[in-house]
Design a protein around this nucleic acid. Structure first.
Length: 263
DNA sequence: ATGGTAGTAAAACTA
């Protein structure tokens, strides 16, 4: 059997309804096998599935009204669907969806942002990572083809933010958040972007709307990630960040991260 | 950035 190309992308769209045209144009151009969306900000009933179905994409939404929400878009139908994290209920559900495509499982997460380090919301973020680590412990082994993608709301290392000293107390670069993320990574994940672009500075996936000309001034963060187990990393051919999508008209404050494989 | 902007949804809340 000859190897086949497999392309996965992740995008925090900040409302799928507000970003529908941008996402459709990107899909038409890039034709990924799977696109993981975060911050869809829509109930499953209201998710605009039709234009995706017209393009032969299956949609698995897991959303809620107004905030958060994730979705899997895929050319193959997903099997083995799982929604949410054990112990996370109510308004903070709608942050995880898992689907399996052939022998590749994909977990798409929108990690809680955390608001401020001295709040219960930040403690909840740390606990969320611990629950996610338990989820991987319980549900998968590191010799499986598993991919974890999404808005992790953490920049892993100094190289992943524009000013590590200034941002040290921010919830997306706080030492406690970074070590919580590291505990999940230590389960057995490879950061695909760094696998292909080790030591490359100023490679970001997020630029705050509120910072004037943040993109032009290089004031970014690498918060959106595609990580996978070692056997899948061995089949990885490339990983890149599509900065141009952040320059589009009415963009999200995040942009697309893409990974390709030969399965 | 003790600011700022964007989206939801109809006044704040979330990011």
């Amino acid at each position: 059997m000859s190897p086949s190309a497999f392309k996965v992308a992740t995008y925090n769209c900040n409302s799928i309804r507000a970003r529908l045209d941008l996402v459709l144009e990107w899909l038409d151009r890039e034709e990924p096998d799977v696109l993981c969306l975060q911050e869809t900000k829509v109930t499953d009933e209201e998710f605009p599935s039709d234009p995706f179905a017209e393009r032969a994409y299956h949609v698995v939404p897991h959303g809620r009204k107004a905030h958060a929400g994730v979705a899997l878009l895929s050319r193959q139908e997903a099997h083995g669907l799982e929604f949410g994290l054990e112990g996370i209920h109510g308004a903070d559900d709608a942050r995880l969806v898992k689907g399996t495509f052939g022998d590749v499982s994909i977990v798409n997460t929108y990690v809680p942002q955390g608001r401020a380090p001295d709040t219960s919301h930040f403690q909840h973020k740390l606990e969320w990572f611990d629950r996610l680590r338990h989820y991987f412990d319980r549900r998968f082994t590191t010799d499986e083809l598993l991919l974890w993608a999404g808005d992790f709301n953490v920049a892993p290392d100094d190289i992943d933010v524009y000013d590590p000293k200034r941002l040290a107390k921010h919830v997306d670069f706080h030492p406690d958040a970074r070590s919580a993320l590291k505990r999940v990574r230590d389960w057995g994940f490879v950061d695909l972007f760094r696998l292909h672009h080790s030591d490359e500075p100023e490679q970001y996936s997020f630029w705050d709307y509120r910072v004037r000309d943040a993109l032009e001034r290089g004031m970014g963060w690498r918060l959106d990630h595609i990580w996978c187990t070692e056997p899948l990393a061995q089949r990885s051919t490339d990983c890149w960040i599509d900065v141009d999508a952040r320059r589009a008209e009415r963009p999200s404050d995040h942009t697309f991260v893409v990974a390709t494989f030969e399965l």
